[in-house]
């Protein structure tokens, strides 16, 4: 399968998923809309991590720090400072992006398992700070976070159906935006660094600058997801910032297929929905979740999207 064919397949999968999401949205009840919003928010978070992990090869176990930064910035700006929510949303992305610049300046000096562990360490330090912070409610968290008032556009975001549609739209925009980024010269350089960092450096490429830029962009988009999560739950707590949240996002990316952007979206849907329904069936649902992860690697190999692309290749060969 050529690169072009692969790209078309991904776009087609994205289109099918968007259509499926819209169909689900149109037929869903109140709780269905809640689930749609949850999946879409986590999909945004996972796509931002995929830019790091899949495209640039930077495996972070501290990405929740930026998700949390976005959520806490939204809570702080709206609840504590009284900003309107529509303004807090972009401001939260800036806050998360700035935090990513600072963290990234240290982290991009390391690679491989050392990069994983330093992002974990910084993430846990952010968690420890928020857990003890009186301003942000400590481990009790903070409630009463409003959603933007988009009455002028005829939207009432407090209605789950309007909110989920808005989040779905944002997820689609993030996907299209990140697709552009990955396909751009900037994205090509990141992919080159992923393939062979030493070679890129020998070619005179300022590798660290590129890595820092990717880290910052991914952080800002994670901040967007965090801000949306805060608005969705009307509540924040340090749980959002634990390393297990980062771990879940990483799992979602791997399950869906690294470096494919659409894969992590499918992964978010699969993992969240499987968890939701399995936990209603048995108290040992984590057992089956664990088996599912093992099965994905054994059967699908490179995640759901990776398996689809392999199938397409095989089919293509057979047809050709």
């Amino acid at each position: 399968m050529t690169d072009l064919a692969q790209d078309r397949l991904r776009l087609a999968v994205a289109a099918v998923m968007a259509a499926a999401a819209l169909l689900w949205w149109a037929t869903a009840g109140f709780f269905g809309h809640e689930l749609i919003a949850q999946v879409a928010i986590f999909a945004i978070f996972a796509m931002s991590l995929d830019l790091l992990v899949g495209t640039a090869g930077m495996v972070s176990l501290g990405h929740a720090a930026f998700f949390g930064a976005g959520a806490y910035a939204t809570a702080g700006l709206t609840v504590l400072l009284g900003w309107p929510a529509w303004l807090a949303l972009p401001a939260s992305m800036v806050v998360a992006g700035l935090l990513a610049v600072v963290v990234g300046a240290f982290a991009v000096r390391l690679a491989g398992v050392f990069f994983i562990m330093i992002t974990l360490a910084i993430g846990e330090m952010v968690h420890a700070y928020l857990f003890r912070s009186r301003t942000f409610g400590g481990d009790d968290g903070l409630g009463g976070i409003p959603r933007p008032d988009l009455g002028a556009l005829g939207l009432t975001l407090d209605d789950p159906s309007h909110f989920s549609l808005a989040v779905l739209t944002l997820a689609l925009l993030v996907y299209l935006g990140l697709r552009q980024v990955v396909g751009s010269p900037f994205g090509q350089v990141l992919a080159g660094i992923h393939r062979n960092e030493a070679r890129m450096r020998a070619l005179g490429c300022p590798v660290r600058h590129y890595k820092l830029a990717a880290f910052t962009l991914a952080g800002a988009i994670a901040g967007l997801a965090g801000s949306l999560a805060a608005q969705h739950n009307n509540f924040i707590s340090p749980e959002l910032v634990t390393w297990t949240t980062s771990g879940e996002a990483l799992i979602v990316v791997i399950v869906g297929g690294m470096g494919t952007l659409v894969g992590p979206v499918a992964g978010a849907a699969a993992v969240i929905l499987a968890g939701h329904y399995l936990s209603g069936l048995t108290e040992y649902w984590m057992f089956f979740m664990g088996l599912m992860f093992v099965a994905v690697v054994l059967i699908a190999g490179d995640g759901l999207q990776g398996a689809l692309e392999r199938l397409a290749r095989r089919f293509g060969r057979a047809a050709g």
């Binding site: 495996v59 791997i254 690294m258 040992y284 057992f287 979740m289 664990g290 992860f293 690697v297």
Partner: peptide, 30 residues
């Protein structure tokens, strides 16, 4: 399981062994 995973990418190893954490915890509880 793991014999087949040695040549696999580190991320696959992460996913499999992470899955085993879940399986192990619930097995112990059971």
């Amino acid at each position: 399981l793991l014999r087949h995973m040695q040549a696999a990418s580190p991320m696959k190893q992460v996913l499999v062994t992470f899955g085993l954490i879940f399986v192990g915890l619930d097995s112990v509880r059971y």
